[in-house]
Design a protein around this nucleic acid. Structure first.
Lengths: 237, 237
DNA sequence: CTGATGCTTCGAGCGCTATCGAACTATGCT
DNA sequence: AGCATAGTTCGATAGCGCTCGAAGCATCAG
């Protein structure tokens, strides 16, 4: 048979294969918190022994999906870049829409559904509520799955302390609409999304859950967070 | 050991595993042309026998990444949705940035680099040139990796025959910046991107390559295409 | 130093899955 | 009808890679 000149296309099977192993997939989704995790933590997360985890982590490193930082006798792993996080996010979304089956309602799930970290910004009910609020106040504009900062929004966030000189130097989008797999609606990602989540942590309005992606707001914190960004309070909790 | 309540998260390993097999990965990238392909075509593309291809295709169907249409004794396979295409696209980009090695320069590759189909819109040098031209004329506005249609652009495309009533009914974004893995710059995706590529085909300015993702412009067609959208002609060919 | 903890390497076991030959069904062409 | 082409099913094979036990480094705390 005639061997046709195969075009140079990146081979996606390598990356996909790395993610395609259940244990590694669990590790990657665990790292979607944005937090750096140690090898043992990831082993627990993936339900494998330390040895197995070690070999998986080595592969993920070699495949350039993760980076490590050694600190004493610990090794802290993180997703290598926002690109990797975005890929995982897209996979989560597609997977959610394919496995739209069991809508469990355990306590952990409810917390996750309410507010959780999506790599570096806020997702869940609170995430989309925030997005809606920003829209209502005209701080951002939405055009079918895209989000852009308005002049009004620029002013608002400048006064809150966002340094847009610095922000604009980065190639990363300021605003980015990110589809929420539990709510099936948009929340805000991008630099601004990351900034707001960080702001909530700094002000002690909320704190991360130690083991899951959940974000826990204090009662007071939630009120302040809502008033700061003009979110209409809905049902309790 | 204490079995902690695991949060409900979609399992990304299933989808990733499907893509992670080299033969299946090749099939999926082949389908990025947007064209429907038969089982044998896909078998050739993936370099496997018909039997093997059949089993792979069955898995991709079960995994809901593809859809089939039976026509006579042929089966035409297609990516199931734009979501799937976008996922594959993201994987191509990430993979390209990881394997930024061999920049081959075969004839096929040059054609691909020049102009190719990215699922349903134009990519490659021509794709980014088009994007730049639309920017220069103020038809679209760019804000760090986002693209939006301007009023001026709305007028321009309306006059060209785009039915925006229909367009706005769809949930799909009108404009979408899509990172080009060969050029490492944006080109235009979304409904408008798809519309323009289709327009070029309709006007017979260009035609698809039968076996690759390459798009071949006729000499005349290229001139007309450029003048229609105000693209500055660069080097020959 | 000794013991404890975090992580890695080695080796053996073993299950999963991609692969293809051969045989089968289905459709189309003449 | 009779043959060619498209696609599938079955079964056997082979090999890859996940897994964990055991032993080995590395780091830290006394």
């Amino acid at each position: 048979m005639l061997k046709r000149n195969k075009p140079l296309q990146p081979d996606i099977s390598i990356v996909a294969n790395l993610i395609g192993e259940p244990a590694r997939a669990k590790m990657l989704t665990a790292l979607m918190t944005g937090k750096a995790l140690t090898a043992t933590e990831l082993a627990l997360e993936a339900d494998v022994t330390a040895q197995t985890a070690s070999s998986h982590l080595a592969k993920l490193l070699k495949g350039e999906l993760l980076v490590v930082r050694k600190q004493g006798r610990h090794k802290y792993f993180q997703l290598r870049s926002v690109d990797v996080a975005e890929l995982v996010e897209k996979m989560l979304n597609l997977s959610a829409s394919i496995q739209q089956n069991s809508i469990k309602t355990g306590p952990v799930d409810q917390a996750l559904r309410h507010a959780r970290v999506c790599y570096d910004h806020l997702a869940g009910e609170q995430g989309v509520a925030l997005f809606d609020a920003l829209l209502n106040h005209g701080f951002i504009a939405e055009e079918t799955n895209q989000a852009t900062l308005t002049d009004k929004g620029l002013l608002f966030f400048s006064e809150l302390g966002v340094d847009f000189k610095k922000v604009n130097q980065s190639k990363r989008p300021v605003c980015k609409a990110c589809l929420d797999w539990s709510e099936r609606r948009n929340h805000l990602a991008g630099q601004l999304g990351a900034w707001m989540l960080n702001y909530a942590f700094e002000k002690n309005w909320a704190k991360r859950d130690l083991t899951t992606r959940a974000v826990h707001f204090s009662t007071q914190g939630k009120t302040k967070f809502a008033s700061c960004f003009g979110i209409k309070q809905t049902r309790g909790n």
